[in-house]
Design a protein around this nucleic acid. Structure first.
Lengths: 228, 228
DNA sequence: TCTCGGGTACTCGATTTAGAGTGCCTCAAA
DNA sequence: TTTGAGGCACTCTAAATCGAGTACCCGAGA
């Protein structure tokens, strides 16, 4: 229960905004966008209010007053409680000290790579490399500009790290492209062969009858009796 | 609608399993675990059946027969449709060719680093580095073992890439630790100063009055009239 | 003067997700 | 012989998520 409530980092972001001064949710969102934190924390208005409610239920923030400027929708100003202050330290410490298992889409995609014909895969990987390089160039541009504005590096570390990840990915994609083209990647011959023969599209090209399957695949698949 | 249905890669994984031969959802899950795909694709039983239903509604798979071995719960065997075969190619192509914006927890954490006192942050970062190194060693071990089993590299690329990411992260954390310790990271002095003075915990240490805020923060925050 | 695009500040509902729970089975040890 | 651990194959429900929608306001241009 307390564990699942730490799932959405947007909640932490809101807490930290409120740590600066009391404000209403929409203003916190505005501030986060202002400071470009919406590039590191998924921010959408649907979740924002859900997350704020949950923070209030948990006693980490409390409503201070509600006002309505003109006849615009009413807005509730929240303030951080002591429990909230403690939660910031705790949650943030956990996030920094303990790596969490993540599931990037590209890792998933790579694990099914053999399902595409090798030449298609190659073309698509090259496309990705180009897109990534464009993104990287954009990020570099942004960084230089921001630096000129005088923002110290401390307040930009997240983007620095994001760039590091992007560079690593670019390198890897390039290497992969080369290894496939040159046939250096072991498995390509069977891969190509299987698609040439109009073979089934699998994550385990049939020539090998997936090495990890051992005898186990049959276990839950072969007692096909007693059809209802 | 079609867009949102591509959100969970588990659906793609199921499609690909069914591409091998018809089977019931639980068996697909077993096969995925067998082949260690659950390390690249988030797999839990709650989502599994939801995802299968959605695939059926979209006409990508269809029920072939339902059987019940003994008096165990009934199981439904699904098979891939032609639409499903096409969807595999399409979806996978998209995943490979177009990088998608992701929000790793550590990026979020870094963007709030100034909210922790610098010495705490340092200690936590060192902790993370150690954990990451342990994980990397484990991954290397697994890879060597798997290699000895004779699994070709093609069927292991996703882990290779995951390791590349991990290495990049380790490097970065090390650099960050050094830059903070040595004071080379610009902003540390103010950072330390602000926490020494028992200052507020913010993502924008107060001495700078967040450079990116310009005049804008006041916009939605200062018309505090007409309290209801 | 009118209006039209863009910003403000939320609300709503349809999906999705996570993970605990269920009831059945098998096998092995006491 | 009983008992209990562990696997099978789902089902259920509470919570989270996302994006579209709403209702208002303001300022610039025709």
């Amino acid at each position: 229960m307390a564990r699942s409530s730490r799932s959405n980092p947007l909640a932490l972001a809101v807490l930290i905004c409120l740590g600066e001064r009391p404000m209403h949710p929409y203003e916190a969102a505005t501030m986060l966008r202002q400071r470009h934190k919406h590039e590191s924390v998924r921010l959408n208005y649907g979740s924002l209010y859900a997350v704020v409610d949950s923070l209030e239920r948990r006693g980490l923030i409390e409503a201070q007053e509600t006002e309505r400027p003109g006849r615009l929708p009413e807005r509730t100003i929240y303030r951080l409680t002591d429990k909230g202050t403690a939660e910031i330290q705790d949650w943030l410490s956990e996030l920094i000290s303990a790596p969490t298992k993540e599931y990037p889409a590209f890792v998933a995609a790579l694990s099914f790579l053999p399902a595409l014909p090798p030449d298609t895969a190659l073309a698509l990987l090259k496309e990705r490399a180009v897109s990534l390089e464009v993104e990287l160039a954009a990020a570099r541009g942004a960084r230089e500009y921001i630096q000129k504005l005088g923002l110290p590096r401390l307040l930009w570390v997240e983007n620095e790290f994001a760039m590091v990840l992007k560079e690593a990915e670019i390198d890897y994609v390039h290497r992969l492209v080369e290894d496939i083209t040159s046939g250096r990647l072991e498995g390509v011959e069977q891969w190509r062969q299987m698609h040439d023969e109009g073979g089934a599209n699998l994550m385990a090209p049939s020539p090998w009858q997936h090495p990890l399957d051992e005898e186990v695949v049959g276990k839950s698949g072969t007692d096909v009796k007693e059809i209802s």
